[in-house]
Amino acid sequence: MSNILTIIFRLTLSCLIAGTVMGTTFVFTNKAKKANEHAREEKVVYSLLGYSAENPIPESMGLYEVFRYVITDAGQSSIGYLVPAGAGDHSEGFTFVRIDLEGKYMDSNPVTISHEKVREQKDRDVAIAAAIGGGKDIRFADHTIIVTDSGSRLAYLLSGKFPGFKTSIHIMMALDPTYSVLGLEIMEHEEDPGLGAEIEQDYFKNQFKHKPFETIKSIEVAKAPLPPEYFDAMEGKVDEEAAIEVMKQYRDQDIYALTGATISSAAVSNGVRSMTKKFAYRLDILDRVIKEQQLQVPF
């Protein structure tokens, strides 16, 4: 009997010690993890915008996150945007704008949440629910970053997921205010090495660069060999001006499919097309609503 008691006592003690060790580690690492994740995302954002460690982002630029939600209230869906409030270059607090499915303004509510906590989905959800009143189902859909420079819009950064050849492909891309593509980054994918995995390569993803919205709207893939000069331009083998010149030549053309990986190539171009189209449609509505309602936003 005392044997069992000893066992129980020692096991409990071991568990407690283990729990303490793990708990401490968790507390200690959790913050670092979040910070690192954010830093990683930011790095991609900067590189998409053409900035890097050597070429740091200017002070005058501002990055504003817009969170999109789908709200269901008694069977009726509507779209909600959590936008930073404020004017000019600095923002204070957030506003939650609701727009119905037809694109008509419904209402807007101020949301009280700090800039640090807004990135935490849980905190954000709670704050929004408090702002618009209970009884509604709120579902986070996606978030977009609007980049401004001295108050004028410079770019939009959006991320998205779409099905690839095997599992889904996760990308981030930057659009300019006319919705032309500024850059594309493949974040995660599980395509076949040597085939679909080539979507990571510059010569594929840079094909989207500088394509105007009109082209993107109906972009398809073409099964033709990639012209060598175009390849060099995208891989950065020629100097920048020449590269831009070459890329200009191809800007209105379809995407050259990767050899042997048409499905992956088509998946990316379809994904980019639909992401861009949806984004443009939504942002136009949001801008119109902001303008009509004279909401104060920093972008």
């Binding site: 789908v70 869906s77 779209i79 727009i99 499915l101 694109g103 859909a141 949806k278 449609y281 939504r282 509505i285």
Partner: peptide
């Protein structure tokens, strides 16, 4: 529309 994108 897709359930996740009721506005599109």
């Amino acid at each position: 529309f897709e359930e996740a994108d009721p506005d599109i």
